[in-house]
Amino acid sequence: MEQGTVKWFNAEKGFGFIERENGDDVFVHFSAIQGDGFKSLDEGQAVTFDVEEGQRGPQAANVQKA
C-alpha cells in the first residue's frame, strides 16, 4: 500500500485526487473508500491506498484513512 495526502475531494460529485509520496496525483472515486457510512475525504487528510489501472489511467483503490 502507498501513503498519500488528499489534495482535494468533492463530496457532491464523489471524486477527487490524492497526492502520492512521489508527488504525482492519483484519481480517487468515493466507491474506493473503505468503511461504513458516508464516504468522503477531507483536504490534507492522510490516507493509505493501492493503485490500479482504470479506464482513464491510474486510480486509487482500497482507500483507508490513516
Rank of each mutant, 00 (worst) to 15 (best):
K39C: 06
G44F: 05
F49Y: 07
E12W: 15
F49R: 00
N10Q: 05
G54M: 07
I18A: 01
E21H: 14
Q55R: 15
E52G: 06
N62A: 04
R56G: 09
G37F: 07
A32W: 04
D36E: 12
D25I: 12
G35R: 04
A61H: 10
D25R: 09
G4R: 01
F15L: 05
P58T: 08
A61Q: 11
V51T: 07
D25N: 10
A11E: 10
E53Q: 15
G35K: 06
F30C: 07
D50E: 13
S31E: 05
V47R: 00
Q3W: 13
G23P: 02
I18R: 00
V6N: 01
T5Q: 09
A32L: 03
H29D: 03
R20T: 08
S31I: 05
G16W: 00
Q55L: 14
D25K: 09
I18D: 00
E12F: 15
N22V: 14
G37T: 06
T5V: 13
A46I: 13
V47H: 00
Q55T: 14
Q34R: 09
E52Q: 11
G54V: 06
W8H: 04
K13P: 02
E2L: 14
F15C: 05
K65P: 12
K65L: 12
D36L: 11
A60F: 01
V28G: 01
E43I: 15
G37S: 07
N62C: 06
R20V: 09
G44L: 04
E52V: 15
V51F: 07
G44T: 04
M1R: 13
F15S: 03
K65W: 07
Q59D: 02
S40V: 10
V51H: 04
G54I: 04
R20G: 05
D25Q: 11
K7H: 07
F9K: 03
L41S: 03
E43W: 12
K7D: 02
K65I: 14
G14V: 02
F38S: 07
A11W: 10
G44M: 05
N10Y: 07
N62S: 05
F27W: 06
T48Q: 08
F15W: 15
K13H: 11
F15P: 00
M1D: 08
D24E: 13
F30A: 07
F49I: 02
W8Q: 03
A66T: 13
K65G: 08
A32F: 04
E53A: 11
I18M: 03
G54W: 06
E19T: 15
Q45N: 07
Q64S: 11
V26S: 01
D42V: 15
V6K: 01
F49T: 01
T48P: 01
D24T: 15
I33W: 04
E21P: 15
I33C: 03
E43Y: 15
T48H: 08
G16T: 00
A66M: 14
A61G: 08
I18Y: 00
F17M: 09
I18T: 00
E19K: 15
G23D: 09
D36G: 10
G4E: 01
K65S: 09
G35T: 10
G4P: 01
R20A: 06
A46W: 11
E12K: 15
K7N: 03
D25T: 11
E2N: 11
K7V: 05
D36I: 10
Q64P: 01
V51M: 09
G35S: 09
F30I: 08
G4D: 00
Q3P: 06
D50I: 13
S40E: 07
W8F: 08
A61P: 02
E43T: 14
